[in-house]
Write a protein that binds this DNA or RNA. Structure first.
Lengths: 213, 213, 213, 213
DNA sequence: CATGAATGAGCGTTCATTCAT
DNA sequence: TATGAATGAACGCTCATTCAT
């Protein structure tokens, strides 16, 4: 997930501190009002700095968005492996992945929606940085799937594709929260997701394994 | 799907004709450049009318977006029932729904992505009009699911929730086309979708029914 | 002196009218405060239009400057031939050129100074448009000089170079008006200019010709 | 050429050293990019100091310009007398002045152009400091002219005015270098300048004197 | 003395919207 | 009805200047 956003300031600690202020404020405002309706002045004000200050840590308004989306993508890449690591068997890892992804999304609903709304507002090059990050996170899930296939726990589906279905299923919780929240809780959503997504691919052995508990 | 977008012009035929010009142009441009980067002038030019003319058929730039999204939502509501009607058994209807929805999405990839990006740019009231339309379309699928459950073809899942999973699965084809297109064709995508989503919920009877052919 | 400054407005009469308003206002302000200290808003206000209007007739602030300088350069190209045409002999034409150029400069002192201050503020390409116009005007004088040389009225100097000296001598009246005005009138300036510049190059015949009157 | 640019620093040696750094850098940048397009940061960086440091030796950005222009004007005042002193007769001194001024200009073409572009950017008071310096340098030439007149070498022209013509003739070499350089060398330029400017004012005696060699 | 992060006023420019024709 | 010129508020961004360290 390599990227560099240029800054006029040298001190790395200061850069980190200021960028956090800016990104936090921007995330909140972008999520609430959208990228285009949010002004740099709004962000600066909420971050408690001057508008000019922002441009010492960022080249563009685009860059602010990039930083915000990067933060989201990195949070996924950071938290998902941790959740998976707790499970010991391949199948448990897969269940954990489905469930964990939904939880991570739930914690960052606004930011996840933002990613869908705004990634395309980024110039091609910056957009690709985000997409690369996304693909890498998906790969983590695809690897678990691959492992399950090789272990004979689930049948031979396209791992990448299945990973995408799991991811999209989780994202749906954020994208359609306005409605889903009216018909079920997060835990119910996860249960039905696991039950449908997983049962659709389990082998006999996998099935036995899962119900044996 | 009731809504009214005010117009200064009286003649309903003219309103329809002009709005079609405007909406067609806007759909193309919004999809390509996004709502905020598209100007009323751009739309007018592509529609072959003057910028002032637009405001005789629309109150706002927002209104243009509303009209565009309404058109998308209505297309779903129009085409989905047709596709389902061709199938004779409940289970076939469900398979048809999953497949048809993917096809409809594929034909309107840009517009579907647009809906995700831009619905939130609408003021609350207008946004709800769109969401209402979406919910109605989902209901069509939920009804098919309900029918399958009652017929004992699939087990007792939450119909609304399952409908959402089917819808999101289709939308994913548009939202992640940039990557999915690199790993499979639409038909492969549909196959794996049906296979996973459906197998996850089939009852013994449903299973027999499906493999019996 | 070909050039085109793009305009969003179609009607040529309107373009001409508005551009005149804008250029007149800009010329006054640029001359008084300089290009960089003058804002588009200042220009618009003095021209009696809105700031946005300016950008319907001009692409850039640079373009305003280009238009202003073009007007100056064209005024030279327009008025100089007229003044020269009145004289019947080559030598008279040369005297007329020296004198006329000074008068033209005097009438546009501010604009002439502006050209010296600001031409370099133009991007290379636009700058060259101006320089081309300047060179063309110089050529008019160089031609008269050539004619005088061929007629044996003045000795064999480099016509282009001598033309430049005549031009610079006139420009000096604008560039150093702050001081020259304290030591002589325009007519005195012209007299001494003619007397020095011309006497320095006259042949015997030319001398006789001139003093014979 | 009295002037004082205030400084927060006391040590005169340091002031001189720092100001030289600043002025050297500023001269280069102003000449290349113009006063307004050059930022204090640019200057500081090229001078190898911090932006804040600049403001310890200067009150204003204007002040930097003043210092730069002062340096130019002083260079003229310093070098011209030296060149003249070498000549022994009044007429030789006049020829030397014309020639030397052109050489001095040639060595500082960029700075000379800068003076024309930017002097007016100075507030009235600071501008007058520069103009005073300029006038003093001109006086040096005017004095030589006066001497020539009194000695009967040249006829009775307005010394100040003639001095201006000589100065402008030299400045032209810088101002119009973009074109003059394409038609002659500096030496050719000087030759034609001397030949035209001088021959225009020589008395019989002066003429004899000059051709006698 | 020197640094460089921080400020904030102000500029060029865009564009939704209006309205005379 | 339709046009398109005109408006002006608002935005992204720059940079001279200040000041705590």
């Amino acid at each position: 997930m390599s990227y560099t956003v240029a800054s006029a300031v040298e001190d790395p600690d200061l850069i980190q501190k200021r960028r956090k202020q800016i990104v936090d404020a921007a995330t909140e405002l972008f999520a609430k009002d959208g990228f285009f309706r949010t002004t740099i002045k709004d962000i600066a004000k909420l971050a408690g700095v001057s508008p000019g200050l922002v441009y010492q840590y960022v080249t563009d308004k685009d860059d602010v968005l990039l930083l915000v989306l990067l933060e989201v993508v990195e949070a996924y890449a950071r938290e998902l492996p941790v959740a998976i690591a707790k499970a010991s068997s391949p199948l448990d890892r897969l269940v954990a992945a489905i469930s964990a992804y939904c939880h991570i999304v739930d914690e960052r609903r606004a930011a996840t929606v933002l990613a869908y709304r705004s990634t395309k507002s980024l110039p091609k090059h910056k957009r690709e940085i985000i997409q690369r990050g996304e693909t890498q996170t998906n790969q983590i899930i695809a690897d678990v799937i691959q492992e399950c296939i090789e272990g004979g726990h689930i049948r031979d589906v396209n791992p990448e594709l299945f990973a995408y279905q799991i991811v999209m299923n989780a994202h749906a919780w954020a994208l359609k929260a306005w409605h889903l929240k009216t018909i079920c809780t997060l835990e119910q959503y996860i249960d039905q997701s696991v039950s449908i997504l997983l049962r659709g691919v389990l082998t006999k052995r996998g099935e036995a394994e899962l119900t044996g508990r």
